[in-house]
Design a protein around this nucleic acid. Structure first.
Lengths: 176, 176
DNA sequence: TACGGCATGTAATCGGTTACATGATTTA
DNA sequence: TAAATCATGTAACCGATTACATGCCGTA
């Protein structure tokens, strides 16, 4: 075992950084932020400060290299290393942890017996939000070419949003 | 404004505690843990330590009362107060924050271009997990009577899991 | 009455989030 | 050239999670 690996345990954000560097080439933290925003961040948001701190950590462990511009904005461009690629692939090969859903509206519905009159408004808001999201995801060309991984992500988002929408709509019908 | 309210800002877990105390009556932290486990926790898990610390905080602000047994396990039973009920209802009436989804499997799929051969295994695991979950949720009588809020929660979980399952299954078919 | 597991609680770490701070480009 | 916004980064707080620690209770 080389001394460069096995330092800090990696978290989800680590693999997001590694994955984006692998998929879209060397980037600054700002580039990462932009790429997250239009892809992963849509269903797994990070505050931007994580995208500044995390690559720095990865550099310490040798999973990325950092080169800082000597003039101008002196920004840092990160590049994935072979060790980084290995870590990424190893993570990809592990079984995935179970999914979590955090839906405050659902929570309120669950406790709505304490004031049943809120259900209609809750559902109406949820329906409007989901319709907006679905419209966004249905933009032609959003996910890229058929069969690409970004396209699959969008399709997945769409099907889950539609199921969610159907639920809240049926709730509206049941108690108008 | 009385001095007892308006202290700490409340978080999601606060309302889960208040909601459970309102719905299921006075409880100990352990009772809360059990109730979370079979309901809310199914889609919004908390570590048990939160269910010990949070009611304590709520007691400080007068949203619950705490009575400690003087013998035996000396456990603390919490009861929601009128102020607590008011806080709960006020939260219920506010518009809900948008839902978040955290799905590590989806993340791996998104980055799977770095090693495409993992997709089949990923999908297979996901399908198996989702089938197990769905079987669990389909247990007759799990959600309680038709039209109850727990029942609606279960129905919602079912429809989302089914949409998720359909997605991963179609992925398996596309690339066997 | 001894033992094992259930129940109860607390302490400390670790990471996410918020907030601040500054410099570089662009545009009016 | 001044103002506004974009880009870049850092620091501190706060809460969630992990881990520990202990005591009660049922059972053998």
């Amino acid at each position: 075992m080389t001394p460069s690996d096995s330092e800090h345990p990696l978290r989800t954000v680590s693999y997001v950084v590694l994955g984006l560097l692998e998929a879209a080439g060397p980037q600054t933290s700002y580039d990462l932020e932009r790429n997250v925003e239009i892809s992963v961040g849509f269903f797994w948001p990070f505050p931007h400060s994580q995208l500044y701190r995390e690559p720095h950590r990865l550099a310490v462990d040798g999973l990325v290299t950092a080169t800082r511009e000597s003039s101008g904005r002196r920004r840092t461009v990160y590049t994935i290393t072979d060790a980084g690629r290995a870590a990424l692939r190893s993570w990809l090969a592990e079984p995935a942890d179970p999914a979590q859903r955090r839906d405050p509206a659902m929570l309120k519905l669950f406790f709505s017996d304490a004031s049943p009159d809120i259900v209609a408004g809750l559902a109406a808001h949820r329906v409007a939000d989901l319709e907006k999201t679905i419209t966004f995801l249905e933009q032609p060309g959003l996910g890229g070419p058929e069969g690409s991984s970004t396209r699959r992500t969008v399709d997945w988002g769409l099907s889950l949003c539609r199921a969610d929408l159907a639920f809240w709509r049926s709730l509206l019908q049941d108690q108008p």
